[in-house]
Design a protein around this nucleic acid. Sequence first.
DNA 1: TTAATTCTTGATCGCTTGGTCAAGAGCGGA
DNA 2: TCCGCTCTTGACCAAGCGATCAAGAATTAA
Lengths: 209, 209
Amino acid sequence: MGETTAIPRKTRIQAQNEELILKAALEVFSAYGFRGATVDQIATNCGLSKPNLLYYFRRKEDIYVAVLEHTLHDWLEPLRSLDPAGEPIEEITRYIRTKIRLSRDNPKASRLFANEILHGATAIGTYLKGPLKDLVDEKAAIIRGWIAEGRLNAVDPHHLIFAIWATTQHYADFEPQVQAVVGGGPEVMTKAEETLTRLFVEGLKPRSQ
Amino acid sequence: MGETTAIPRKTRIQAQNEELILKAALEVFSAYGFRGATVDQIATNCGLSKPNLLYYFRRKEDIYVAVLEHTLHDWLEPLRSLDPAGEPIEEITRYIRTKIRLSRDNPKASRLFANEILHGATAIGTYLKGPLKDLVDEKAAIIRGWIAEGRLNAVDPHHLIFAIWATTQHYADFEPQVQAVVGGGPEVMTKAEETLTRLFVEGLKPRSQ
DNA sequence: TTAATTCTTGATCGCTTGGTCAAGAGCGGA
DNA sequence: TCCGCTCTTGACCAAGCGATCAAGAATTAA
């Protein structure tokens, strides 16, 4: 009791391997979903044996939760940085642009979450109802304020945020469909960014000004 | 050879059971995805034994493809009925309204497709590149025509269609998230419909008119 | 009623997969 | 160098799953 409670310091090897595992896990889970992915796949993908991988994460689910948590924070950063002191149209334009570029540069994270939520969000359900809801409510209040000041068209802030999420993440989550319809060149994403910003800006800019 | 070639007429029992199976399969596949779903689950779900189910569909994949095809046609009906002779804003408003109601009334179909595409669209890839692309291109041309006539704001038609798909299906595919953030009452969907139509209408209505 | 056909199922097989275990290899501090 | 701890792995296990099969039950056509 007088001693310091056991603090499990992380070995160099531990930190290194856990990072390898999380990277491989994102790859595999985002491609096949939780049930579709296999521990063997993840192990092979990062050059470890299966028992060795299970030495670092006892259960498959532990890897899954770890990679979800590890990715969630970064994913919400753009919304977090929506600035109440900024110019409304400019702030929202920047948000859309950041989100769609995140979707382009890190589609695996998008697909990981999409799959998790699509299948009931059992692993991150409490997170959604807690921190996520709090963040969204906070930003929705800001938008509501802008609307009250007449600086934005009157739309429901929550559903506006949903719309931005849906449209931007669509390009990562439904990539095969987008690819099938308009092809897969790099110009697709720039065109998407252009179209979405115009659509939302025109949709939100007050008529009388 | 002189005889008529064997036409496999469907028995009453056949038709009845196949319908039961497809219904149960939609339920299970939409909830767990292809790999996550089990033949046993589907069988139990429709009151048949597993071998009996496999008497009607030889392989698990056959059930999956069947239920996909069975649902795809209905799912695209709203886009198909976009009328080139109609009033642009009115047509698109109707399309959004129809889509979001379809998403509300048949979320399982939405989730079935979402899962299929999210995991690479291996089963319907050729359909996407064929009939779907053709349909979308056709409707995009109509929208492009409306824009050329100055009856709509200038946005890329393909990406506009993607945006409508994304925003409307979001409420089915990401239901747990929507529920976590704004709750699950029936007013959510009406509010969503209202917000989306306003957003798109304001975004598409030409400023100078 | 009879005979052919369709339908149904218990038992079972082969394979995949998550997870365990014991035993050895590697590493770091004294 | 030595010793304790961390790390690694081949072999293995039990459960779950897709699929098969043979044999019996139900249905249908005559």
